Amino acid sequence: MDKEILLANIDKIHTTPLGITRIRNNLQLDACDVVSHCKSKILDKNCRIYKQGKNWYCEIDSVRITLNARSYTIITAYLL
């Protein structure tokens, strides 16, 4: 299953400095580690993970996290 590929590569997940700012603003987060926050959402058993085209989409708790499927870069995360 595709989901297992993402979970097996959870340690590769990262984002850019601009991504940190964008995600923090979109999710209305305080000064927390954005990547760790996203990883914990992705690892939650209730997270719906699917691959569409070149991206992974992870949806949980009214949040959608989008990652590049090749580089495991968090592109964005936002409230649904």
Rank of each mutant, 00 (worst) to 15 (best):
Lys51Trp: 07
Ser71Tyr: 03
Arg24Ser: 08
Asn9Tyr: 03
Leu29Gly: 01
Ile60Met: 06
Leu80Met: 06
Ile10Met: 13
Lys54His: 14
Ala8Asn: 15
Lys45Asp: 13
Ile5Asn: 09
Glu4Met: 09
Ile65Asp: 12
Trp56Phe: 10
Asp30Tyr: 04
Leu67Arg: 00
Ile13Ala: 02
Ile49Asp: 08
His37Ala: 01
Ala77Thr: 09
Thr76Asp: 14
Gly53Met: 10
Leu7His: 08
Tyr50Trp: 13
Asp44Ala: 10
Ile49Lys: 11
Asp11Asn: 13
Gln28Ser: 12
Met1Ser: 14
Ile74Thr: 04
Ser40Leu: 09
Cys32Val: 15
Leu18Pro: 07
Ile60Ser: 10
Arg24Thr: 12
Ile49Phe: 07
Leu79Pro: 05
Val63Asn: 01
Lys3Cys: 10
Ala77His: 06
Cys58Ser: 05
Ser62Met: 10
Cys32His: 02
Leu6His: 01
Gln52His: 10
Asp30Met: 04
Val34Trp: 00
Ile13Trp: 02
Ala69Tyr: 11
Leu7Val: 08
Ile20Gln: 05
Lys51Leu: 12
Leu43Gln: 15
Ser36Asp: 15
Ile10Asn: 12
Arg22His: 14
Trp56Gly: 05
Ile74Gly: 06
Val35Glu: 10
Asn46Pro: 01
His37Ser: 02
Lys12Tyr: 12
Ser40Tyr: 09
Thr66Ala: 01
Val34Ala: 00
Asn26Glu: 15
Pro17Ala: 11
Ile49Trp: 13
Ser36Lys: 14
Tyr78Asp: 12
Ile60Phe: 07
Cys47Gln: 02
Ile65His: 06
Ile23Ala: 00
Asp11Thr: 13
Asp30Pro: 04
Cys58Leu: 03
Asp44Ser: 11
Lys12Val: 12
Thr76Ala: 09
Ala69Leu: 13
